[in-house]
Nucleic acid binder design. Sequence first.
DNA 1: ACTTAGATTTCGCCG
DNA 2: CGGCGAAGTCTAAGT
Lengths: 227, 227
Amino acid sequence: MRLIVARCEVRYSGRLTAVLPEALRLLMIKSDGSVMVHADTGGFKPQNWMTPPTVIEEEGEPPVRIVVRKRAGASEDRLDIVIAEVVSDVVHDMGEAAALEKDGVERDLQEELAAAPHWCGEGFRLVRREWPTDIGPVDLMCRDADDAWVAVEIKRVATIDAVEQLTRYLERIRLDPAMGACRGVLAAQAIKPQARVLAESRGIACVEVELAVLRGEREPDLTLFAA
Amino acid sequence: MRLIVARCEVRYSGRLTAVLPEALRLLMIKSDGSVMVHADTGGFKPQNWMTPPTVIEEEGEPPVRIVVRKRAGASEDRLDIVIAEVVSDVVHDMGEAAALEKDGVERDLQEELAAAPHWCGEGFRLVRREWPTDIGPVDLMCRDADDAWVAVEIKRVATIDAVEQLTRYLERIRLDPAMGACRGVLAAQAIKPQARVLAESRGIACVEVELAVLRGEREPDLTLFAA
DNA sequence: ACTTAGATTTCGCCG
DNA sequence: CGGCGAAGTCTAAGT
């Protein structure tokens, strides 16, 4: 990884055009070809960047200009860095860093709900995870206490888009006469108010679940008030 | 901006939990409180991070542990960095860097189409930008050559979601008896094939536009074949 | 190669 | 401060 602190001006052209006036910034060049231009503020996001694969050209010693190119379909993405002053320019060999291990993403929520579908509705039994339709798989297909079909869509945060998605699935599923009465349930750690309104207006039930509760790490909030 | 190159292990807990095993990485600490953990690969995205506002605690000299905290609603986001070896630790004062000036985003497309709505359909005249409905504003509301209402949704890249969004708007708009026959037009720099199919199956017209053409920087491709 | 859906999405605007 | 829509979204997975 190469870290250059320099006074520079940056121009991007590609999907849009953008200009950064001359200022002191960090240029981060990773060994995979990524190039990022960071200011000292602005949080997480670089002011400008290019994702791999890239071709990097450099002029001067110390560098006075760095051009990063990328083939993107018919046109070209191009990052043009003009350097007025180099304050620091160092290279660190970092080797391979192990990947991030995450826990708590949607997939984990789906696993827990598949193992205990009663959290989605009383008496629910799992028929199949990733039930296929011709426009994509439904997260869970269950039968309820009356043996009726229920399609469950799982999100970490459910927005109006999740309701649209489940609605599309239900349209397809109900084309099968045997499943013409299939219900829908939206299960999520958090459900946005407008998503809830739209869902209920379409007869789709909403259930908020907590991963920690599903895992039995603690009792439902209900117990906080039980004493 | 502080740049630390160090062998370290990182644990995040908050919206989810995540672990990074010990390896050589770059720790970037911005003066606005942002903290990012970058590996030498993986492109644009840090392996782990925390956005401002944060509280940063540090132990040891050189540092052996850095804890970054954030209040996020009821619970706490926490980034725990345990440092085994510091290879480099430097601070650069970068002052204020000017913001990025972008051109070519959806907003720009909307401005051009508002100024020349005939690109959306023959004889179109603009009635209002950001026409309000109870579920959000429609990009453009126009009248066509026959004085009929037309709602225009503008995207840079139109996917199936754009069709759903315009469909929701049309549902609401048509509740008004005076606009019961309001048509829909999807205008975008690029329209995905599946979005086009869904749109046309719902009677929504599709128009692909080019920003450069709208600005008159060059003639439509048509002229390429006119000679 | 293209499309779809997730993300600790982040970011910005507007109420 | 919360909700919603855009993003050069990026990225991984499936087809």
